[in-house]
Every structure is written in structure tokens, then in C-alpha cells.
Amino acid sequence: MTEKWNITLRVSRQKDTENQHFDDFKMEVNPDEYVLDAVERVWAFMDRTLCYRHACHHSTCGACGMRVNGVEKLTCITPIRAVTSNGATLKVEPLRNFPVVSDLAVDMGAFYRKMEVVSARAVLPITEAEIENPATNWPQNDAQFLRLSDCLECGLCISACPVAATSPEYLGPAPLAAAQDVGIHRNPELLGIVDCEDGVWRCHSAFECTAVCPSFVDPARRIMALRTQVIGAKLGKLFGKA
């Protein structure tokens, strides 16, 4: 028999210029369902005015990022069992550091523009990809094969970053990780974009981006690697190798 839990879904609500408040929705759930399923149940059966973002339901589109009990999660792959218990309250809020459009939906426009500024790659040759646990028969040396970039552009890293909370112009973890992926050696213009006040040196090593990243990006590690790229490029210029 399917296990059933009774939970209270506490949802952040905010329309137009009103202040943030919370609405509680009591519901019966299967604890192996995902948090997004519970949010959708509110919209489908309880309150059609609830606004949230979602699309693929399998952690590819990166649209359903929210804060679940205060921590950034991709709600389509976060089992209810992992974040609450039977009879307890589950709080969902919009991502931090993005303007709230309505309820749980935020405006990601500025973030996407930053991804464009660093020429983030949507696909890349397998020969340039960092593969997690590659199969032994993986065509690692065949450049004709492409793969999607690991970054879902979900914005969880921006939401979790304490520096992004106070520096609107800061490029942020995902764009800096994307810049590292592109590489200054491939795109020398990146040096001027990331080697600045709001670039790679603004990171204060809180590592929250890596802690919440639902994919294999590890933005903090990439930011540190980008610093090495920047120093290498500047030393190269200094000694006339650029």
C-alpha cells in the first residue's frame, strides 16, 4: 500500500506591491512525491491564483528552483520525504536575490543576461567536458560528439550566494563558472569581463553555490580555477606571451 503523509505546505505569497505573507495548505501526499508535485496540487485543486515556474519535471530546464525550508532546491527532484516529516510543515519560498514577479516566480532576466555576457556554452564537445564517472567505452577523444552543458541555469547558486545578496552587479557563481568553462584562452575578451570589481575577485568563498548546485557544475571550484586562469593570462601579458 502506498504510504501517505499529511503535511502543511506553507507557501510564500506576494502579488504586485504587497508584502510577502504565507498561506497554509493542508494536504495528503505520498512522501516519495516531489516538492513540485505538492506545489502543483495547490494550483490544481486549491488555489488557481498561485504562480510558480516549472517545465520539464526532470531537472533539465532548471525552472522550478525555490527555497524549501530555507534552502535552495530544484523542487522537481527534491522528494518530500527528504525535507519534512509526516504531520510537519513544509515551507516554500521564491529564490533570493531575484525580483519576485508573483508568489514563487522570480524574474531571471538579469541572470540570463550575465550568462550571455560571458558567452556561456549551451553545448560543448565531449573532449572539453568534465565527465562525472565516465563509462569505460565513453568516446572521450572524439570531438564530433557534443553534450549539453552541466549548468541548468536554475539560479540556485545566485540565490544561495551571500555576496550576490548585496552586489547587484556581481556576475555570480553560474556566470563565472560558465566563463571558466569557456576559458580565457579560447575567448581572451573574458579577461576584461571577469577580472574586475564585480567579477571573479568578488567571490568571498562561502561555497554555498556548490552546496546547493543540483548539477555537476561545482561553481566554487570553477571560480577558483578561473582565478588561476586570470592570473595566468595576466602573467602571460606581463611577459609578452599573450
Binding site: Q14, Q20, R67, N69, G70, V71, E72, P94, R96, N97, F98, P99, V100, V106, A160, P162, A164, A165, T166, S167, P168, Y170, S205, A206, F207, E208, T210, A211, A220
Partner: peptide, 22 residues
Amino acid sequence: NNQPSANKFWAWFNPMGRQVGG
């Protein structure tokens, strides 16, 4: 609302939802 702002420096000290690096 909810945009980044220098006035939100207090958020640096909020331990809620933070992990070891935070």
C-alpha cells in the same frame, strides 16, 4: 522586491539555510 541590495548586508549574518562554507 527581493533584488540584491547593499542594504541587505545583514543577510551575511543570517545562519538560516546556510551550510558549512556559509
